[in-house]
Design a binder for these strands. Structure first.
Length: 320
DNA sequence: AGGGCAACCTGGGGGC
DNA sequence: TGCCCCCAGGTTGCCC
């Protein structure tokens, strides 16, 4: 599950191994990953052939490689995407979707840039005139590691919002690069429950969770960034960070390392959230009760277990 | 208008 | 043994 650190590791790998190379030709083996290119897979391949990849850039979880044509090759890894640099002789990966053959340099073996993606939530694109910043990414905010990230503006925006802080952290138009895993980790570090409405947080709360986002992402970046020396680089969220350093995400039932209380899993936003019920107390009432006029569905009232069960969570098992 | 949420995908794993 | 359902979650697009 690539979030900012994993994508940044890929960017560095691209910078090192493919920038300056010329695309010889392109095979689109599955149409879905280039679905965003409305002119079709063939046009996508034609526009890349013969072009030089001049840089490797990133915004949030999006990548792009400016071309000498002024266009850009764009990439998003989605949930399961990988960008691999492989010798042309390497056997095809099971989920190989797009192959870019790079023009061989004298005296070196042929190399390919391969987009491999099991689930195909991600994809490649060709952004016209997108070398500086693809318009398709203009809506994406800066990430917290960007020196130009405006902490004060972020705090103002959070504190003006009725949404839960986790939802805000996952909103790429507010802050980019944070996904479900690092959101949970940052909230655990900041001792904040993800359903706490932004407008009920103090400025100190917001700065604390922002600092925590930076800490967890930098920590992951250090660990991931040490392991891609080889020509082959493979990043799909499996950095060592995942095994060693997670305090909350995926730790259901394990004792919180601060207070020993078992970490709890809850369903939120159609996915899992992991929290320490003691360090990260849930907001008192459901975040907003009947925020709007149409609260019919919300009739499912806050479920409360006296013995310290789930404080307030709506658990709806999908109907089968 | 902006927030909330289902759909998009596939393979692995658990349960029966 | 085999099948079926659930689960993972980033982003888009639709609905309210």
């Amino acid at each position: 599950m690539p979030e900012l650190p994993e994508v940044e590791v890929v960017r560095r790998g691209l910078e090192r191994h493919v920038v300056g190379r010329v695309v010889a030709d392109v095979d689109v083996l599955h149409p879905r990953p280039v679905r965003r290119h409305v002119a079709g897979a063939e046009d996508f391949a034609d526009r890349l052939a013969g072009r030089t990849l001049t840089a490797a850039r990133r915004r949030g979880k999006y990548l792009w490689l400016p071309l000498d044509s002024g266009d850009a090759l764009t990439a998003h890894l989605g949930m399961s995407g990988q960008l691999l640099v492989q010798p042309a002789t390497a056997p095809d990966e099971r989920h190989l979707r797009v192959r870019l053959r790079l023009r061989p340099e004298p005296g070196t073996p042929g190399v390919e840039l391969r987009f491999v993606d099991q689930r195909m939530f991600g994809g490649l694109g060709l952004s016209e005139g997108g070398a500086v910043l693809p318009p398709e990414m203009a809506h994406v905010a800066l990430d917290p590691l960007d020196p130009a990230f405006d902490d004060a503006a972020f705090a103002r925006r959070v504190r003006a919002s009725a949404s839960g802080i986790k939802r805000i952290l996952l909103n790429q138009t507010v802050v980019s690069g944070v996904g479900n895993i690092y959101a949970d980790e940052a909230l655990w570090r900041a001792r904040l429950h993800g359903e706490r409405p932004g407008r009920r947080l103090s400025a100190a709360d917001v700065h604390r969770v922002l600092a925590a986002c930076r800490e967890v992402m930098l920590s992951a970046l250090e660990q991931g960034g040490t392991s891609f020396d080889a020509l082959y680089f493979n990043v799909n969220g499996q950095s060592g960070y995942f095994d060693r350093s997670l305090e909350a995400y995926g730790q259901e039932g394990r004792p919180c390392s601060r207070c020993g209380t078992p970490i709890r899993r809850a369903t939120f936003m159609n996915r899992s959230s992991f929290t320490c019920p003691v360090c990260q107390p849930a907001p008192r009432r459901s975040p907003r009760r009947a925020a709007g006029p149409g609260g019919a569905e919300g009739a499912d009232r806050t479920r409360r277990t006296a013995s310290g069960g789930p404080a307030s969570r709506v658990d709806e098992p999908p109907t089968s």
